[in-house]
Amino acid sequence: MGIVQILFWFLTALALVSALMVLLSKNPVFSVLWLIAVFFAISGHYILLNAQFLAIVNMIVYAGAIMVLFLFVIMLMNLNKETEPQKNIWMKIAGAVSGGCLLMVLISLVKQANEMTGKTALMKDGNIGLIGNLGKALFSDFVVPFEISSVLFLSAMVGAVVIGKK
């Protein structure tokens, strides 16, 4: 087993355990911290796939900006204690069972698909994840969606200010 395989399984286990702990921890602050661990594991997967730009952007935008925003909201509302009222236990069991059924159906579907057998993802070669190639594609082929997303950001900013000031 090479170093790439070992890192793949380590990051996979880290992502799955952290994602489960997001659900299971009662304190919302701990949930946020476990979610940051999930984002770091996914960034590690991006680095393994040689998508360096997305790895850095994932760390800066998700783990840096969005999660800090979540932490600010939780601490401003003084929610950092275990105040969640307990839901009916049958509702929890029903949610877990339905999610497990969905997972089993999707996994059996993927295992049967002939298109997916024998295909591999290129792990550390390839240069499409580098920032130069991505920038050239972004500002030539995808320049109209890029501008539209800037308008989306402006409207989201105005909307957040309007909703928050009320």
Binding site: V4, Q5, F8, T12, A15, L16, A19, L20, V22, L23, V38, E84, K87, M91, K92, A94, G95, A96, S98, G99, G100, L102, L103, L106, I107, V110, K111, M116, T117, G118, K119, T120, A121, M123
Partner: peptide
């Protein structure tokens, strides 16, 4: 790595998210 491993990992993470939306 085989692409199926990535599909299974993404499906597991997605299902954990769905269970969280349903139960919390």
């Amino acid at each position: 790595m085989p692409i199926q491993y990535y599909i299974f990992l993404a499906l597991a993470l997605f299902t954990i998210g769905i269970v969280g939306v349903l139960t919390r």
